[in-house]
Nucleic acid binder design. Structure first.
Lengths: 126, 126
DNA sequence: CTTGACCCTCACACTAATGTCATCCTTTAT
DNA sequence: ATAAAGGATGACATTAGTGTGAGGGTCAAG
């Protein structure tokens, strides 16, 4: 199938499919006219790529184990686990950081509200 | 004081200070030779900018209320509260998203471990 | 007068996946 | 034969703050 059909079937833009190829995630054959020729297998492959992207892995990381994962189950690919664990560590750090900011923001919002109430009650007294 | 001294006193790079000026957060005077001339007040201003940056506000957002905040307390600046609340909403969305990814990753890691144990015990039987 | 330490502006690099546009080629339908 | 649809490549834009380097002034000490 040609790239347009693959894009439509997967919901991934043509641009992105070309990018995945450039990053070594896909290796479509070429027709004589230069058009990319994708097997039906590519459809599953694209969905798999998308899945890993939503997990926050980079195309480079995905390229590192995709060939294995497409043939076996994840658990059979040594490359996957360390990346998952590394990503999990990153995510935890990010969450921690965000929680920190969040509580800071909440404190500030609260104290603004308090000060404004205080102001309002002073106004009442006048 | 000149930019180098200000950078040293605040720990913020010269590059960043110039950038803040470009974004309208600072308006140093200029000496006749073109050098920026900062008041001691700029030091506090830089620290305030940094504080808001760590809260995840953009220089554009900071520019929007900095003039007020530098003169009054936050609570007196109408512009601040909506930005805080907007940022808080964003942060909560990000956290939610990260938690989602996190649990997905954890599940996958767990299931890989399980499968590998399963594999190992099968090997023992041989 | 020279050296070295500062200062200036301008501009590119970075991250990473995707959008978008320009220009050109191929195929298919009219 | 021509027009429309779709494919190819290449390149720039996006985000936002910061690093870095070029090329060139300024100033003070020796």
């Amino acid at each position: 199938m040609k790239i347009g059909e693959l894009a439509q079937r997967t919901g991934v833009s043509i641009r992105s499919i070309r990018y995945y190829e450039q990053q070594g995630l896909l290796s479509p054959l070429r027709q004589e006219n230069g058009y990319r020729e994708f097997s039906t297998f590519a459809e599953e492959q694209i969905r798999t790529i998308q899945l890993y992207l939503t997990l926050g892995l980079s195309t480079e990381q995905i390229a590192y184990f995709l060939h294995c994962v497409m043939k076996n189950k994840e658990a059979f690919c040594q490359e996957v686990l360390p990346l998952y664990e590394q990503k999990l560590t990153e995510i935890n750090l990010q969450i921690q950081n965000l929680e920190h900011i969040k509580s800071n923001l909440e404190e500030r919002i609260l104290s603004i509200h308090n000060e404004q109430e205080h102001l309002a009650s002073n106004q009442k007294l006048l």
